[in-house]
Design a protein around this nucleic acid. Structure first.
Lengths: 194, 194
DNA sequence: CCTAATCTGGTACGTTCGTTCCAATCTAAG
DNA sequence: CTTAGATTGGAACGAACGTACCAGATTAGG
C-alpha cells in the first residue's frame, strides 16, 4: 500500500460527480452514462469507469454530493430570515430549476436503491431540523411535509413564481393560521405560469 | 378512410400502456424500451412501435392512463370516510409501493416534457378538488401540499406505516390544530421502518 | 534510487437499443 | 366481392452502451 488515494484522483472524482449533475440536468436519468459523464467532464471514458466502476456508483456519489449542498442550504435557513429563505427557494425552484429536478430524480432513485436511503434520509432530516430551529414554526413536522409539497408544486406548475408570493406562502405554511383561513396567496409581483 | 381505429387496436394499445407501468415498476424509467414493453405485453416489437412511434408516446400515454386511475381514487375520497381514504393511501404507498413510485417517476418526467404538463395538472387538481369537497378541511390548498409531502415521506421513509397512523396523520393535516400543538403521531399499530 | 500501486488513455467485444422496411393478413365500407 | 386502409410479424441497420483489457505514465513509500 503506497499511493492510497492521490489528491489528483480526488479532483477527478469530484469533477466527474459534478458532470453527472450537469448531464442529469440536461437529459434526465437515462442519459447518465459513463461516456456522457466523462465527455461532460472533459475526461476519457476510462477515467469514469476507473473511479466509478458501475453506473450506480456514479449516481450514488452524485446524490450524496448534491445532498451535502442541500443540507448546507437548509442549515443556512436556520440562521437567516424568512425573506432570505424565500429567495433561496425561488432561486432553487425557478432559476436553477433543472438542478432541482435533477436532485429530485436522484431522490426518487433512492426509493429503489437501498444504498441511497441514507442520503435521502439526511436530506429530509436536515429540512426538519432547520424548521425546528426556526422561530415561530408551530408544527415543524407538518411544515416539513408542506414545504416539500410546495417545492414540488413550484416545479410542476411554476406557482408561486415570485419571491414575494413564495414568502407569503411560507408565512402561511410556517406560521399558525390565525389571519388567513384559507387559500395560498396568489402570485403578487409576477404573473402566473405559461 | 375505413377502419379508422379498430376495437382490437384499442385493446392492444391499452395492453401496451399497462405493460409500461409494469416495466416501470420493475426497473424504473430507463428500463422502459419498446422491446421490454412489447415483451411484457406478450406482443411483437412491431406492435409497440406501430402504436407508439416514439418512446415519448409510450410514456405519455402511460402517464395519462395512470393519472386517470389516480383521479378516480381521489374522487372516491370525496365521498368516503377518512378511514377509507387512510386505507387507500396505505395500500397505495405500502402495498402497491412500486406502482406509486412508478407514477411519481412519470410525474417527474412531466417536469421535462411539456406534453405531460396537462396530465400532471389534472392529477394535482383532482387532489385539491377532493380536499375542497371533503368536510372539515380548514385549508384545502395547504392540505394538498402537505398530503403530497406525506405521500413522498411514506415512499421514502416508510412512515407512517400503519393504516391507523396514517389516519391520525390525516386528521392532523386536514383538521385544524386545536388539540395537538405539534408532532406527527408516530406509528401506532406496527413498528417503525428499517 | 527502486518498487509497487495508482492512474491514464485508448481499443475492442458483445449486447441492446431506436428505427426502418416490407410482405402478408385482417377489417370494414361500398 | 372488392378494395383501400389498418394491422401484423419478422428482419435488419447503425448507433450507443457497459465492460474488459492493456501498455505506458505517474506517484508515493522504503
Amino acid at each position: 500500500m503506497s499511493a492510497a488515494i492521490t489528491a489528483k484522483g480526488q479532483v477527478r472524482r469530484d469533477a466527474l460527480l459534478d458532470a453527472v449533475i450537469r448531464v442529469l440536468e440536461r437529459g434526465g436519468l437515462c442519459s447518465v452514462t459513463h461516456r456522457a459523464v466523462a465527455n461532460e467532464a472533459g475526461l476519457p471514458l476510462s477515467a469514469a469507469t476507473y473511479y466509478f466502476a458501475t453506473l450506480d456508483d456514479l449516481l450514488t456519489g452524485a446524490l450524496r454530493r448534491a445532498t451535502e449542498g442541500q443540507v448546507q442550504l437548509f442549515a443556512r435557513l436556520r440562521d437567516g430570515t424568512l425573506a432570505d429563505f424565500a429567495e433561496a427557494l425561488h432561486r432553487w425552484t425557478h432559476v436553477d430549476r433543472a438542478s432541482a429536478i435533477a436532485q429530485y430524480e436522484l431522490l426518487l432513485l433512492a426509493m429503489r436503491r437501498d444504498g441511497l436511503r441514507e442520503a435521502a434520509d439526511s436530506w429530509y432530516r436536515a429540512l426538519e431540523e432547520a424548521l425546528e430551529a426556526t422561530a415561530g414554526v408551530a408544527r415543524p413536522q407538518v411544515a416539513a411535509l408542506t414545504l416539500d409539497g410546495l417545492v414540488l408544486r413550484m416545479l410542476w406548475r411554476g406557482e408561486p413564481s415570485s419571491v414575494g408570493a413564495i414568502e407569503a406562502a411560507l408565512r402561511e405554511i410556517l406560521g399558525d393560521a390565525h389571519d388567513r383561513p384559507d387559500r395560498l396567496p396568489p402570485s403578487t409581483t409576477s404573473g402566473s405560469s405559461a
